[in-house]
């Protein structure tokens, strides 16, 4: 039975989903079509769940279920980022009825293009976590014994910091960034896991760090205790692949699902690194 979407348009009984699939790293990708029965309150996750339960293409061919990454389904974990109808976003908040308003025939799903595909819609975003290491995105406390409360902070400070700390490392800002390009390495036959990791880290560290990590550096540089190691974070941002690579396209802020003021962070980091560079020059 057809039901109606929220604005009264009649929803179809079923719809097609076009998915860009890939068996594994280094393999060719290909499009595959599935037909899914329409249900009330569907999102892209429930579409992929239906496909997993009955993995048949529109031609009736049985195929392996589509691999994808997800966890919380509430848009707070960042796992299910993919490219839905050409737009990078979380699959959980991609509501089917809304998508069908744009194109009532089909929904198109692709993996993010800036990260190596592991399989189908699942990509390797470990580079993002490496970037957080590079900018030392943490408060350098002495330890975890009871030392009383942290420094008192004003409500204004909290209201600036909180939006930045909502970054869930989903990668949307990087997918949309013209300067952020894919880094994909293959393990050599004679290479140990540890050596391969080292080589990957080196490649990540010399490539553009991207808006998410820059904004985290700004977050911790504004924290009363985090400030104490601000110089180290600014050094990281001035390193190869640092803030100077940013081309100011401002796509990042437009696609961030948490509406984090990323370009404000980048501007702040830009000013701070300039001052830091001048200071360092005088201190030589």
């Amino acid at each position: 039975m057809a039901d109606t979407s929220h604005n009264g348009h009649k929803a179809p009984d079923s719809f097609e989903v076009r998915i860009l699939r890939q068996g594994g790293p280094g393999q060719n990708s290909y499009w595959e079509r599935h037909r899914v029965k329409h249900e009330q309150d569907m999102n892209v996750i429930s579409v992929l769940q239906r496909i997993a339960a009955n993995a048949q293409t529109v031609d009736g061919k049985s195929v392996a279920p589509v691999a994808w990454d997800c966890n919380c389904l509430e848009e707070v974990c960042g796992a299910c980022t993919m490219v839905v109808n050409g737009r990078t976003r979380q699959a959980c908040t991609a509501l089917v009825d809304r998508l069908l308003e744009d194109n009532s025939k089909e929904i198109e799903l692709q993996p993010m293009t800036k990260f190596p595909v592991l399989r189908d819609l699942m990509v390797d975003r470990s580079r993002m976590f490496r970037s957080l290491q590079k900018v030392k995105a943490w408060v350098p406390v002495d330890g975890y014994y009871d030392m009383g409360p942290g420094p008192k902070q004003s409500r204004e400070q909290q209201e600036v910091a909180y939006p930045l700390s909502e970054c869930m490392s989903c990668g949307c800002c990087l997918e949309a960034c013209p300067q952020y390009t894919k880094v994909e390495l293959t393990q050599r036959d004679d290479e140990s896991d540890a050596d391969f990791q080292k080589r990957k880290n080196a490649a990540y560290d010399s490539s553009f760090i991207g808006a998410a990590a820059i904004s985290q550096a700004v977050l911790f540089n504004s924290h009363p205790t985090g400030k104490n190691t601000a110089g180290e974070r600014l050094d990281a941002l001035m390193d190869e692949g640092g803030i100077q690579v940013c081309g100011n396209a401002q796509n990042c802020v437009a696609v961030c699902p948490k509406e984090i003021p990323l370009t404000t962070s980048i501007a702040k980091a830009g000013r701070a690194t300039t001052i830091h560079a001048i200071k360092k020059w005088f201190d030589r």
Binding site: V139, P149, T225
Partner: peptide, 20 residues
């Protein structure tokens, strides 16, 4: 003590007007 620790670690707890 756990609240204090998490506060030191930088958790962005909501604040009162006085900063508590």
């Amino acid at each position: 003590k756990i609240i204090d620790l998490m506060d030191r670690l930088g958790v962005t707890f909501n604040r009162t007007t006085e900063g508590f």
